[in-house]
Amino acid sequence: MKFLALIAVLSPFLGWCQIGGQSGYQSLNLTSNPRAAALGGTTISLADGDISQFFENPATLDSVETSNIFFHFNPYFADVFVYSGAYTFNLKNMGTFASGINYINYGAFNLTDETGNQLGEFRAQDYTITLGKAHQVGPFTLGANLKLAHSSIESYGSTAILMDIGGVFRINKNWTAAMVFENIGGRISEYSAFSSPTIPFDVKLGTTFKPQYMPLRFTLTSNSLTEENSEEEETSGGRSTGAIDRVWKRINIGAELLLSDNFHVLIGYNHKRKQELRLEDTGGGAGLSYGLMVKVKRIELRFSRATYHAAGGSSFISLRTDLNDFKKIL
């Protein structure tokens, strides 16, 4: 068991395939909750009762109670808005499930003909509907998400059926390791006969560790570990300076300062984001992220901010509670 945990911790440093590749359905790669956003963009090993984490790893559902509800709002860039919601429920003789939706509204665009004459407007949007389930076997938990993903632009649309398969290994009460195979599946319809967007399949590894006598919890998550994502850095003039830099571009680092049960401060760093979006002469804070968690009467509020470029960043806001507790408050 300890050997498997050690592999999970060291694996981010062992995957030497480069990042990149062209694919469709890039909305599947957007951060779905403020906690992950504050910890570098993604985190798969936090299994502490937070329903929003099931978007990142379905195996974390074993720690989530029924009737948990979660709402998330992210004003992204250029009038793009991202919304997420999730709820846990119990089915008789089948246990606890989670359902969720991620919706991205890209806004309105000018519709023109081939000569540039404006004919009106069109809209673009993506959504993903998710159903998740987890099962615990000793210190191991396995989970799966079944996802229906749809992307539409004007009158064109593409739909895919996908699955995430994840696992969490609890080494002890303060240390977990996790692995996720993300977006397994394929398209069931295309935008057109001439367009076949690929699915952004990925493999992620992560670990979370809290020193016993410290009010800190550290999270390390690696992503883009598939060889399918191997060409972009060679063809796009990426800023890699060597093997060490290429490794760090696949690792997100985050930490939570646990000041009390009702107040946490979070900070994270995404090296890939910094390298790809920094200016030539300055980083401008690109790659850094931070956030707060405040709990008031069992209603958990989160706010996070991720800096993408010297020109600015993106904010993430969420609310999470248990409907049974909410009824007691009322």
Rank of each mutant, 00 (worst) to 15 (best):
I153V: 12
K297H: 12
E231N: 10
T321A: 03
L111P: 11
F70H: 14
K204W: 09
N174F: 00
S196H: 03
F181A: 05
L10N: 00
D281K: 13
E300W: 06
F109G: 02
V137G: 08
T112P: 04
F201M: 02
G100Q: 00
T282R: 14
P200T: 09
K327N: 13
I199D: 02
E65T: 12
E182V: 11
D79Y: 02
P197A: 06
S45N: 10
V137W: 01
T282A: 07
A134S: 14
S315F: 09
I317L: 08
F54K: 01
D62M: 07
S304L: 11
E182Y: 14
S240D: 10
E234I: 15
N68H: 13
S230Q: 03
P75M: 06
K297A: 15
T130L: 04
I299H: 02
R170H: 11
S192H: 04
I153L: 09
G20F: 10
L220G: 00
N117M: 10
V137R: 11
Q125W: 01
R273A: 05
G41I: 03
A160N: 07
F89Q: 05
E154F: 02
I153P: 05
S151V: 09
T43H: 04
E228S: 12
A193C: 03
M163F: 11
I299Q: 03
L277M: 12
A160F: 10
S158R: 02
Y76I: 03
V180I: 11
A124C: 02
M163V: 15
V180N: 05
G254Y: 08
L220N: 01
A36S: 14
I184A: 09
R123E: 08
A149C: 08
R239T: 15
T31D: 02
P211V: 10
R298L: 09
N68S: 15
K295D: 07
R217S: 10
L258E: 10
G85F: 00
N57G: 05
F209W: 15
Q22L: 14
D79I: 01
H135K: 12
G268T: 11
T221D: 05
A108Y: 02
L216F: 05
G242M: 13
P211C: 09
N262P: 14
A311V: 11
W16C: 01
R273Y: 14
E300T: 15
S222M: 08
T226G: 06
L319R: 09
N105V: 08
L225G: 01
S240F: 13
F194H: 15
I129M: 05
R273F: 07
F54Q: 01
G21P: 13
K249V: 02
A178K: 04
T176W: 01
L258I: 15
L323R: 04
A134H: 08
G100W: 00
L292M: 12
K133D: 05
E121I: 10
G138I: 06
V296R: 00
L148Q: 01
N183A: 08
F3T: 11
K295T: 14
L301P: 06
Y127P: 06
L142W: 13
M163A: 15
W175M: 09
L225N: 14
F55G: 11
L131G: 06
D281P: 13
V80Y: 06
H271D: 06
T307V: 15
P215R: 07
L301S: 12
C17Q: 12
L301F: 13
H135N: 13
T221Q: 07
Q26E: 14
A86G: 13
S32H: 03
V137C: 04
N110H: 12
Y127R: 05
G242F: 15
L146Y: 06
K147W: 04
G49C: 04
D164Q: 06
